[in-house]
Design a protein around this nucleic acid. Structure first.
Lengths: 158, 158
DNA sequence: GCGCATTTACTCGGATATTTTATGTCCGAGTCTCTTGGG
DNA sequence: CCCAAGAGACTCGGACATAAAATATCCGAGTAAATGCGC
């Protein structure tokens, strides 16, 4: 069980984009260069964020990516779901269905206590991630590292 | 991000083993046959559980696997950790270290707010799983499906 | 009939293939900008 | 000087390789039981 590395990239880049002027866009190449990431692969993640309605993309010169909505309206859960997909980590394959006996009309994804317990745990995980917005992250960074926003802006623009 | 299917198998088999007589062992072949699982691969998972101290294994005739401790002392988290390994789903690769500027002596696994938030979420997940023991599962099954234990025992012994 | 050495069959355990997933790369479609020529 | 048409360059977007991990399989080391032999 390992989360895609793209999640870490996506969260950092979303956070970085919060410090841009409204309407200002940054290309995938500049975002990638800032963390020395492979440009084309980061682009792939940014596309996923765009499909999820988290980013807006504009092609052509002066194009690039920008946040599609206010940072207050983007949760960490939104970003994780955009990159990793909507399915949870535990996928009940209903092994009980293959055991001896009759299983007519049984949905073990719902009735199996193991499946239920795993789902309950993942729900707690999702709740934590859904409680933190990009705006929260921005505020904490500005409070702890006041010099960072300026440095990031400079990095993204050069 | 997808959890190994072996986790589902391991949980079900640990639960099944709770209904055996004390000291009674079941071979990997019988455990696999009950759910029509690939024997050798299930054996691999059982080995992982053995290394983790959850199961005891004895070779030779009349050998097999049994629980190494009381079901009350085995949590779902124990089983998940045994199969998936000790590392969490989110692995902070410290992308901040690759950004412009000085990073002497910084441990972004601890200081980065994104890493912190992800860890907090996983902690909530672990807490839920650690709160449920195999004994809890056993009790619920016996309460909801009184006929199951007998059927399982018969299945494992034939 | 009883005890002991030997054989035999059975089990786990780890080393070895195969399939799936994640990672990384490349080139084309579309769009905005800049240039350039004419009015 | 102003405007419009066209060329050019830049960007995203999805299709295509490569690397890593999960899945599945096989065979050997070790063990306990069963067998056969001698007493």
């Amino acid at each position: 069980m390992r989360m895609s590395e793209g999640v870490e990239w996506a969260l950092h880049e979303c956070l970085n984009l919060t410090w841009l002027e409204p309407g200002e866009a940054v290309t995938a190449a500049r975002l990638a260069k800032y963390y020395e990431l492979p440009t084309a692969y980061l682009n792939k993640q940014l596309q996923a964020l765009t499909r999820a309605g988290i980013l807006d993309s504009t092609p052509g010169p002066r194009g690039g990516f920008r946040l599609a909505r206010r940072p207050e309206d983007i949760t960490m859960m939104d970003v994780v779901t955009a990159i990793e997909g909507p399915d949870g980590a535990f996928r009940c394959e209903e092994v009980l269905r293959r055991s001896p006996g009759d299983h007519e009309g049984a949905d073990y994804r719902k009735s199996c206590i193991i499946s239920q317990s795993m789902r309950r745990a993942e729900l707690a995980w999702r709740r934590e991630l859904a409680a933190v917005t990009i705006a929260d992250l921005k505020e904490i960074v500005e409070s702890r590292h006041p010099a960072s926003p300026g440095a990031i802006l400079r990095g993204l623009r050069t």
